[in-house]
Structures are given as structure tokens and as C-alpha cells.
Amino acid sequence: MLKWMVPAGKKLWKDEDGLGTLEVLLIVAVLVIIAIAFRKWIFAWIEKVFGESNGQLTNTGSLNTCTDPTKTYPNC
């Protein structure tokens, strides 16, 4: 397994087309490190956003379908 991995790794390191991949991996690594460092703040912000949206959803009124005199509904 190492017989083909070592030459492939060397080829990727020398190949300039692989440089874009390396840059993307470094950016992802930095983003992951930032996310880990600020995870408590991120989770608190997400809970706040979802809590506010949940509060807005529960405070909306319901449509009263029993007011239409032309129709009969079983639970009205």
C-alpha cells in the first residue's frame, strides 16, 4: 500500500495543480479551528435565533375554519 502512496504523495507535492487543493484544505482547517475556538458562542447564537423564531411561530394565530356558514365541520 505504501508503494503507491509515497510516489503519489511526492507527485502531488511537486505538482502545481495540487496547490489549489492544498490551499482549500488549509482554509477548511482554519475554519474548523475557528469553529472549535468559538463553539460556545456559535451554539449560544444558534439557540437564540431558533428560540426567537420558535417564539414567533407559537405566537401566530390559528385560522378559525368554523366561521363559514355554508360548510359544516365535524368539530365545530
Rank of each mutant, 00 (worst) to 15 (best):
L31N: 02
D68K: 07
D68W: 08
L2Q: 09
W45R: 10
T60P: 00
L12R: 02
V32Q: 00
I36A: 12
K3P: 03
T58C: 03
T58Q: 14
L63E: 08
C66G: 07
L2D: 03
K40F: 11
T21D: 05
G9P: 04
G20N: 09
N54Y: 15
L19D: 15
W13M: 03
L63M: 06
I36G: 08
G18E: 04
A35P: 06
L57P: 00
G55E: 13
S62R: 15
D15T: 05
L25S: 08
I27A: 15
P69D: 10
T67C: 04
L12C: 05
D15R: 04
P7A: 05
W41L: 05
T58F: 01
E47G: 08
G18Q: 00
N54S: 14
E47W: 02
A8L: 10
L26K: 15
C66D: 02
L25Y: 03
G61A: 06
F43C: 03
V30M: 13
I46T: 08
M1H: 11
V28E: 12
K3E: 14
G9V: 04
P74S: 11
L63F: 09
E16Y: 03
K14E: 11
R39D: 13
A44V: 05
Y73A: 02
W13A: 11
T60L: 15
D15S: 13
C76H: 04
C76L: 08
K40D: 12
G18S: 07
D17V: 01
L26M: 12
L57R: 15
L22I: 14
T70A: 11
W41Y: 09
G51W: 02
L31H: 06
W13L: 10
F43N: 12
G18Y: 02
G18I: 04
C66Y: 06
T58R: 15
K71E: 09
G20M: 08
L22Q: 10
P7I: 01
G51T: 05
L26T: 08
E23Q: 06
W45S: 07
V30N: 02
I46C: 08
F38R: 06
V28L: 15
L22S: 04
D17Q: 08
L31I: 13
L31D: 00
I33A: 14
T70S: 14
M5L: 15
E16C: 01
L22C: 07
L26A: 13
G18N: 08
T72H: 11
I33D: 05
V24C: 00
V28D: 12
E47L: 09
G18C: 03
P7L: 01
V28Y: 03
N64I: 07
N54F: 13
M5F: 10
I46H: 14
Q56T: 01
K48M: 08
P7Y: 01
L19T: 14
E47C: 00
F43M: 15
A44L: 04
N75A: 11
L31E: 04
E52L: 10
W45A: 12
G51L: 09
A37I: 05
V32E: 02
K11P: 02
K11D: 01
L57M: 15
K3A: 12
M1I: 09
I36F: 14
K48V: 07
L22G: 12
G61P: 10
L12P: 00
T65P: 04
V28T: 11
I42F: 12
T72P: 01
W4D: 13
N64M: 01
R39S: 12
W45P: 02
K71V: 11
L57N: 14
C66M: 10
L25V: 05
I36M: 11
L12K: 01
E16D: 11
R39T: 05
G51E: 13
